[in-house]
Write a protein that binds this DNA or RNA. Sequence first.
DNA 1: AACGGGTGTCATGTA
DNA 2: GATACATGACACCCG
Length: 714
Amino acid sequence: MLDDVLPTMRSLSPDSIDVAPINKKYIPDMDLIEVLWKQDVDMGFTMEDPVQPEGPQAKKVNLNDQIDKELKLAEEKIQKKKKEECEKIEKVKASLLEPDKEEDPWAGMSYTVDTETGEYVIQGELPQQLVSEESRFDLLEEALQLVELGDEADSKDETQAVEGSSGTNMLHPAMRHVPHHPLAHYHNQSLMRSMSVEQRWQDLASLLTIPPPPDQYQHYHQHAHPHPHPHSHPHPHNISHGAAAGYTPNYHVPPPVPEKHHDGYGAPPPLDGAYKVESAHHQQHDPLYYQNSTSEMPPNQDGFLQSILNDEDLQLMDMAMNEGMYTMRMLDGASAGHVTHNQTHMPMNNERDSASDSAVSSMGSERVPSLSDGEWCDGSDSAQEFHSSKFRPYEGAYGRDRTSHAPQKKHHMFGKRCFQEQAPAPLEPLLPARPPGVVKYECEQTYHDNMHMHNVEYPPRHQLPPPHVTTLQPALDLNTPHTSHALLQSTIPSPTRFGFASGDRVRHNHTYSAPLPAAEQRQPTRDKRVRRLTDGSTSDGGSIAGHLSRDEKRAKALGIPLEVHDIINLPMDEFNERLSKHDLSEAQLSLIRDIRRRGKNKVAAQNCRKRKLDQITSLADEVRTVRDRKARTQRDHNTLLAERQRIKERFAALYRHVFQNLRDPEGRPLSSNQYSLQQAADGNVVLVPKMQHDHPMNRSSDDEMDRKAKNYEQ
DNA sequence: AACGGGTGTCATGTA
DNA sequence: GATACATGACACCCG
């Protein structure tokens, strides 16, 4: 059949419409075909070297008499089809799930139509991904996808796209005054009748000229440009612009050393920030994440989603990193805190803390049973292991069999012995009056220094609640320093001086300084915890006015000549100095040590809980952030799917439109069942007969293209 | 009475 | 080895 057609093509006249030449790669006698198709039309299109068309596979189509009528019918069909397509688009928008993983291989390329041959000429080289056999035909598909079909709804954008394209100048003047669409000129019957067949087909061919992406399509790729929205899509420009573009605001600056994230949880990055993992902190990290991800990924949906994934992963790693950072910071802060501490309140802290020959430690070798908890009266041992191991040398001295209460677990320590067996310590305080005005809270300070809060100076006394007002300290406030000790000022009179209205400054029993009225002296209880909570040692509720903490009571009972607060918070040097001023028994020294240990541990526990709450808060913020981003990504995904479907449908319509207007020499329409539009390796679009199954062009991809077009129509 | 939050304490590991 | 710190676990109180 092709052999029958080609002779006709040789007689092509300027008024004849041409079928795009089959590429030489597939048609041996391509020269003949090109000669046949050579036309003397100069519409400003890029002219490919016209040669003598000749060959059996070219086909000449004459449209002289029927073109107007056919175009009329085509117009009606197009309009009808457009409506159907619009409906389909709306339906598909909601149903599509898979992202379009294709990227735009036409970006940055210009296309023209050879008016003589009808070929679509790509200016420049094809993208690498389009060089393959399959991609050649996809290229045509993409080209057609980019062509608008006069959708009224999109006419404005499309017109802008066409007019803004380099091909605008190539359009026939008759097309330029068409207000909304290149195809619209077909609506103008008078104009159509005045146009030559060549012009009309050139116009039609111009539809295949690749305009710049329509607004919607441009929207894709210009998103990231000065995209005002923080959660913009990835953009190709991000790749080149690096940090300048890319994801913005919403995604945050990554840690200074993003690659460190790969270390994840195990390798905390360098410490350079505050411990607390604020959401804002993470938000600052994201941009770089996106910068990294977008720079490595194609600007397609896949890349976008992948970038999101990476971002989330990075954030998770960041979270882990921050957690690790905290640990490191705490470790670092321990020393740093000391330094700060030294600079502010405790100049000698480091040296003192590092002192190993402290009073307490010196007691270690000759410790006596502690007066803590169980030892106090009910037999339990607060110093457990310490006592069981180190106090044994003194078991005989105290006439107790400490080996009998080996339990190391606290729940095994209750009711072991009653310290009342021990010689009762004088209740009369021996502690000299403490000079007011000195505030030293090393334990609290350590944590806050680590937090970079530098809030080591606690409120002066005048900021405390008025005396005699029992104020319960609120629950841990993440936004304020934990000031259980802060509430205590050095001006607090010694608990041994019962004259002061105690409790007024004690809002938290962490103070160990709340005095206990003599009447409140607790009775021995079987459970140390019950005792603890009943003797006024409870945190808020228990440390009310007139109540002494357990350790304070113990200290008082044993006549410890130091304030519990000082015992806990004094630097080791000063602490030893204080102790050196008194001749303390082993029992007293042991109690002092337990008091100090418990007091420090109490503060540590408070700080630990506070950190835990901070971490929970930060994680909750991150969860919200990630969820929000997920929702945005899903919305973008749906939008892209809808856009993809729309373009596909436009391609299908164009495909139909082309075939509706193609005519054989007898004026009979060409069926897409018999011919297919294909793109050769050089980018030329050719009309290939399908019936020649043995022809190299008639491969499975032919049917595939038709199938695609048909699928798009559905 | 059950429950959850807050707290103190102990045990343990680490620096 | 002593000390400080962090943290899990437990017990308790309280609303």
